[in-house]
Amino acid sequence: MFELLFSLASIGIVVWLLMIVLPTWRVTRFIADLKIFPIYLSILYIVGIITVIFMNGIGFMQYFSSATGVIQLLSEPNFALLVWIHLLCFDLFVGHFIYQENLEYRFIPLPLQSIILFLTLMFGPLGLLTYVVLRKARNREGS
């Protein structure tokens, strides 16, 4: 079942490609405004986590308190796939934030936005931090 959830989550790449390659296209804006894909990924994650809890209880949470425990959890394939969906969901949410805020306020040029969205897709926090730093620098210039 977790491989099916993983496969279903893979469609999120379409939104990333639209935001990166066609940021001003009205279809891209429409899809981003709906936030349908972060919601969709959230639903997939919820289905997965409820399945984990139903099958195993909440005892897995005890493993979150140590690096060894987290490694042990991530070595279990179904849990690793679920964590991947978790990451996809949050990265896409952050990507939506960057995309929508920058289209509204134009803190950075669109080609740079595309690079930052790619960084966010591939390296999550690096893309977010890059955007926040550049946005802050731009705000200082405008003051």
Rank of each mutant, 00 (worst) to 15 (best):
H86A: 13
T51G: 05
L4N: 15
Q113N: 07
F6A: 14
T130F: 01
P125M: 07
W84P: 12
L18A: 10
L129P: 13
F93D: 02
M19F: 06
M55G: 00
R26T: 14
N139A: 12
S42I: 13
V27A: 04
V15G: 02
S7G: 14
F97L: 02
Q72R: 14
L18V: 03
I53T: 09
G142I: 15
I58L: 13
D33K: 01
G124H: 08
V14R: 01
P77T: 05
A137C: 06
Q72H: 15
F79R: 06
L22V: 11
L74R: 09
V52G: 04
L41C: 11
D33I: 00
E3Y: 06
S75Y: 10
L8C: 15
I98L: 04
Y40L: 04
P111L: 09
E3W: 10
L74P: 06
D33C: 01
L117M: 05
L73W: 13
R135D: 05
N139S: 13
L81C: 09
L41G: 12
G48Y: 01
M55P: 00
V132Q: 04
M61Q: 09
P111S: 03
E104T: 03
L126Y: 13
P111Q: 11
P125R: 05
I115P: 08
R140A: 11
L22T: 11
T28N: 00
I20Q: 07
V27S: 00
L44P: 13
I115E: 10
V133Q: 00
C89Y: 11
S66C: 07
L117E: 03
L18Y: 00
W16H: 02
Q62E: 15
I36K: 08
F90Q: 05
G57C: 03
N102M: 02
V94E: 05
R26Y: 02
F118S: 14
V47F: 12
I13Y: 05
I36W: 09
L88R: 08
F90A: 02
S65C: 01
L17F: 10
M1W: 08
N102K: 00
F123M: 15
